[in-house]
C-alpha cells in the first residue's frame, strides 16, 4: 500500500473518530492515536524517506495537510465539547425564575399627609411659602381677630375644645393668617398646613380632629380674579388638567366677598352621578377676600392692601382622590388599607 492511500485511510478514520468523541479525554485519545508522537500519521510521516525523491515533496505536503486538517478538526471538536460542558455546569445551576423575588420592604406615607404635601408643593410652586402655627391657639387669634362676633356659634363649648382661659384647640388653620400678618409686613404669600379640632360627633364625614391647609396672599390690588386664577391652577394640578372650577358665593366671617370652590366631578366629569349627587360639582374649599376687619386686627392698612385667603380640608381631598367614602377609614391605621393606598 502506498503512503498516499494509507494517509487517506488515516484521515477518514480520524475524522470519523473525532465525530464520535464525547469528552475531552476522547479527543486527547484520538489525538494520540493519529497525530501523537507515536500516532499513525506521525509514523507515516517518518516513512517519507522511503518515498522517491521526485515525489517526496508532494507526498510530504499532502501528509502535512492531512495532519493540519486532523488538528483543526480536533480543536473544533474540543471546543464543542468544552462549550457543552460549560453549558451543562450552568444548566445544573438553573433556578425557578418565576419564584417571587426577595421582598424589599418600603413603607407608605399616610394618605392624608401625602395629599397635604402634594398640595403644599403646588402652592410652593405658585410662590407661597409653607409655614406652621400652633394647635393650641388663643381665642383671640382663632375667633376675634378673624372677625367672629362674640356670640358666634362656633365659639361655643358645643363646637370648640377649650384648654384654658382664652385658649382653644384651633378650629381651623386660619388663625395662622393672623400670626403671619402680625409678624411681617405685606406682601405676604403663605400656606399653613396643620391639625385642627372641632367638637363634632364622628361620622362618615366628620372627625374631632382633622387636617386643613390655609392659604393667604396679601399685596397691593390682589383681587377675587387672582384668587380664582390661583385656585384654578391648584385644581388642575391636584385633580388633573381637565378639571373645571366653579365659584359660588358663600359666607365666612373673615372674608368678604366669600366663596366656595367646586370642582367638576372626578367621577362623571360634570354629567351627574352619585358622588356629586347628580350636580356635576364637588365642593372642595372655602375662600374669599380678607375682611378689612381682619386687617385692622393685625395692624395692616386696609386701605392700602387687599388679600385673599382660602382653607381646605385635606381629608376631603384625600377621600375624593382615593375614593374613600368614610373619613374614619383614614385614621383606623389599618396597615392593609394604608399599604394599599
Amino acid at each position: 500500500m502506498d503512503l498516499q492511500s494509507e494517509a487517506a485511510r488515516i484521515r477518514e478514520a480520524a475524522a470519523k473518530a473525532i465525530k464520535t468523541c464525547k469528552s475531552i479525554d476522547d479527543v486527547d485519545a484520538v489525538r494520540v492515536k493519529y497525530i501523537g508522537r507515536r500516532g499513525e500519521l506521525t509514523l507515516l510521516l517518518r516513512k517519507l524517506g522511503e518515498v522517491s525523491p521526485g515525489q517526496r515533496k508532494e507526498v510530504g505536503k499532502m501528509l502535512n495537510a492531512i495532519k493540519d486538517e486532523i488538528s483543526s478538526l480536533l480543536a473544533e471538536r474540543r471546543k464543542e465539547i468544552e462549550t457543552a460542558l460549560k453549558d451543562e455546569t450552568l444548566r445544573k445551576e438553573t433556578i425557578d425564575v418565576t419564584l417571587p423575588g426577595r421582598r424589599v420592604r418600603i413603607g407608605k406615607l399616610h394618605p392624608t399627609l401625602r395629599i397635604l404635601n402634594e398640595i403644599i408643593d403646588v402652592f410652593v410652586g405658585l410662590g407661597f411659602t409653607a409655614v406652621e402655627g400652633p394647635e393650641i391657639e388663643t381665642e383671640y387669634n382663632n375667633f376675634d381677630a378673624l372677625n367672629f362676633p362674640p356670640w358666634h356659634p362656633s365659639r361655643d363649648d358645643f363646637d370648640s375644645f377649650y384648654v384654658g382661659d382664652g385658649y382653644v384647640l384651633r378650629t381651623h388653620t386660619s388663625p395662622a393668617q393672623v400670626r403671619v400678618m402680625k409678624s411681617q409686613e405685606p406682601p405676604v404669600r403663605v400656606v399653613v398646613p396643620g391639625r385642627c379640632y372641632r367638637r363634632d360627633t364622628p361620622d362618615a364625614s366628620h372627625l374631632m380632629s382633622f387636617f386643613q391647609i390655609e392659604g393667604l396672599y396679601v399685596d397691593h390690588d390682589v383681587s377675587l380674579a387672582d384668587l380664582k386664577g390661583t385656585l384654578a391652577i391648584f385644581a388642575r394640578e391636584i385633580f388633573g388638567p381637565e378639571t373645571k372650577i366653579r365659584f359660588r358665593p358663600h359666607y365666612f366671617p373673615f372674608t368678604e366677598p366669600s366663596a366656595e370652590l367646586d370642582i367638576s366631578c372626578l367621577v362623571c366629569g360634570g354629567a351627574g352621578c352619585r358622588l356629586c349627587k347628580q350636580s356635576g360639582w364637588l365642593e372642595v374649599l372655602g375662600c374669599g377676600m380678607v375682611h378689612p376687619n381682619v386687617f385692622k386686627h393685625v395692624g395692616y392698612d386696609h386701605k392700602a392692601v387687599t388679600g385673599f385667603a382660602f382653607g381646605l380640608g385635606v381629608e376631603r381631598i384625600a377621600m375624593l382622590k382615593y375614593g374613600i367614602s368614610d373619613i374614619r377609614t383614614l385614621y383606623e391605621n389599618d396597615l392593609k388599607i394604608l399599604n394599599s393606598l
Binding site: F123, V124, G125, L126, G127, D226, K228, G229, T230, I233
Partner: peptide, 15 residues
C-alpha cells in the same frame, strides 16, 4: 369673574 393666573406664577415660594 375671570380666573387671573398670571399673578399666581410670579413669585418664588419655599418650605
Amino acid at each position: 369673574i375671570r380666573a387671573a393666573e398670571e399673578r399666581a406664577c410670579s413669585a418664588h415660594g419655599k418650605v
